[in-house]
Write a protein that binds this DNA or RNA. Sequence first.
DNA 1: GGATAATCGCTGCTTAAGCAGTAAATGCCG
DNA 2: CGGCATTTACTGCTTAAGCAGCGATTATCC
Lengths: 163, 163
Amino acid sequence: MSKQHYEIATYRAQDSVGYLVKRTHSLMVDAMEPVFEARGFTFLQYVILAWLRDGIAVNPRDICTQYRHDSGALTRVIDQLAERGLLERVRRDRDRRKVELQLTPAGRETIEGLIPLVVEKLNLALDDFSGDEVHELQRLLVKLNNRLLAAVEPAKAAAGADV
Amino acid sequence: MSKQHYEIATYRAQDSVGYLVKRTHSLMVDAMEPVFEARGFTFLQYVILAWLRDGIAVNPRDICTQYRHDSGALTRVIDQLAERGLLERVRRDRDRRKVELQLTPAGRETIEGLIPLVVEKLNLALDDFSGDEVHELQRLLVKLNNRLLAAVEPAKAAAGADV
DNA sequence: GGATAATCGCTGCTTAAGCAGTAAATGCCG
DNA sequence: CGGCATTTACTGCTTAAGCAGCGATTATCC
């Protein structure tokens, strides 16, 4: 029996965390997109480059699971970035199913040029937030993420409960 | 000059509120979708019905702006719901451009049946949240929403800054 | 060791979101 | 009142996301 944060009798869609998250996401994309569009990139293309820079994700699979994006769709976006010479696919002998994505020098230069624009936009959006508020928002979102992940993928969550 | 919550030198995509929000949204959809799918509905269809129940939105336009959804796409979803006899389009003499959406008895019955399932899922996702944490999450998301809205639609935000 | 299952990246196909443009209705401003 | 701009809902078109299935490779289990 879970806590009754929401109750059937009083539930309104506008109060729902689900609605707020969806709306925030849409607004975030709309606010960020012009930054990338001016340079011929999409949000998703930026994300891939950014994660390669940070070394978070090296395989398409990693990006799919972490960013929750479709595998097939991602392949095509990686194609675009590869055609523009921003990254390369490398097959490793260790596990020949996997493709390791590597930034080219041009790719690294590109992402390093985009990061400041993103950081500026984020800071602007969080302008009237205190440092504590930003950290609390991040913490609560991570917490919610973990719970939702467990609900969506019960098996894997039971194995290793880290994200 | 805005606050430096994120800094260029230390910025990592995984810390970004943008990433967390996107991931939370995807997970939320994945967690909720089975509830609707079992009854032949999509997330968006539920949202429309829920908002009509709450009286939040009566015009397609209202749903578009509040839920940040495409107008053309919404028209087609409303068509589906109308064909299934869950809502009706009513033209008012007051402003004959607008279409007022009204739940039919069947539509009301449908949404009243779905609400408990949604509430249960939400409560489950927020199970290890305290009441304060839920409220804080909602507050911070609303706050971020307002800032982002101002960034996306500067004109309207200047006029009436309520959401 | 050898059969079977699972994983990874990829490719068509389907569906829906996003975009631009249209007609009707209204607001605005002289 | 009259002309122009704006709003609203809707329609085709384009693009991308989501889905199922494939071959190649690896893990698992008897």
